[in-house]
Design a binder for these strands. Structure first.
Lengths: 213, 213
DNA sequence: AATCATTTATACGTACTGTCTAGCCAAAAG
DNA sequence: CTTTTGGCTAGACAGTACGTATAAATGATT
């Protein structure tokens, strides 16, 4: 009747290893040209050298597995550097670093992130989960923009949201994925985005009488 | 043996009607909250009041159906106005109109386009088909940027590709979809994008010594 | 040695895609 | 009017995938 006390102890390391193996296998399959088509739970389990049921025990569902992959990417992909960014006293420099960090992150898991985002559009629940994680990026940008406007003294009201949302868009994966093509390497993308970002926070109205109709 | 000559004549109108009914039904289902989950071929056929086999006869596969939906959107969504845009002698004004036309297009089919793009990421073949259709947008921007640089005399070499790709990104569905949130209506998005677009073609280097690291 | 959590093996149920075949129907061709 | 043609339909089938249920095997913990 009374359950006996039981801690995993040494076993915990093993279970973490299987979990990692599954995530790694899924990531590998997601990278393949056929992408999602090859990433059935069955295929992932085989690639990881594990039974199909184990995947369900660890992640509950395919959705859970995909969320696990994303979190794994975020953990490895240099997101930890964000702490340092906000320690920078110069907010404009912080913005620069912020952009660099995310360019790096998108680069590190480009194909996988692209597929995850795609699936996030198809599966509303997964999309919501991914969007939740992205909101931290927006929150970070709010802090930076606030500091900039305090320092430079530009307190226009609606302009604040415009600046934040614009920067959020400019630092999004989709923008990166669209710009990083042809001969343009990640640092070049960073430079491009940086220029646009400065234009966005400068907030000057268009001159020359070419108002959008 | 020798097949008799046969033209559809009046029947053609009927077949076009069924085709339209199927596309409309699919679009309707794609709009529903559950989105793709409810858009099985079977469900589409039922919604259109048509047999499942008919859908296969018309579109060949689910992929074909989705391509059909996209083409249908482009045909209805004001893409025809693009002709007029390029008749505008002032290239900067043309750019303005170009942005407006696409903001309008993205607005008109926002949810459906979002789901199609998502599926385009999952299904490489569909993705290629969609990308092909998008290349016309890039081509149009090349023309506009060329005219601008001729008029304003800014012949920097690499800057040309940068300007085109940046404008392509700024006028993409993803940018629109990211910016059009909260209280921001489509015209506001147009204005935001327009400002950034001008910054992009102006091509000034960032000042103030905040180079991206 | 008893207990517990992880992992496995196997079988089901359900849903969807895509193919095939045979047949129905109305418009076109003769 | 009769025959032909092509779009549409009906039903069955194979293949694949997700998710669930159940019982059992494994090996560390107590």
């Amino acid at each position: 009747m009374s359950p006996r006390a039981y801690r995993l102890g040494r076993r915990e390391a093993d279970t973490e290893k299987t979990r990692a193996r599954i995530v790694a296998a899924a990531r590998r399959l997601l990278l393949s040209p056929r992408g999602f088509a090859e990433s059935s739970i069955d295929a992932v389990a085989r690639e990881a050298g594990v039974a199909r049921m184990t995947v369900y025990h660890r992640f509950g569902s395919k959705r859970g597995l995909l969320q696990g992959i994303f979190d794994d990417l975020a953990a490895r992909g240099g997101m930890s550097e964000l702490r340092d960014v906000f320690r920078n006293p110069d907010p404009l420099a912080a913005l620069s670093e912020f952009i660099s960090v995310f360019t790096g992150f998108w680069t590190s898991g480009r194909v996988v992130i692209r597929r995850l985002h795609g699936q996030g559009v198809i599966d509303p629940a997964l999309g919501e989960a991914l969007r939740e994680r992205e909101e931290r990026r927006r929150e970070g940008l709010r802090v930076i923009v606030k500091r900039i406007s305090e320092k430079e003294g530009r307190p226009r009201a609606a302009a604040f949201d415009d600046a934040v949302d614009t920067l959020f868009t400019l630092t999004s994966f989709e923008t990166f994925d669209s710009l990083a093509r042809g001969k343009r390497r990640p640092p070049d993308v960073t430079a491009l985005v940086h220029r646009l970002a400065l234009a966005a926070i400068r907030g000057e109205p268009p001159r020359g009488g070419n108002k959008p109709s």
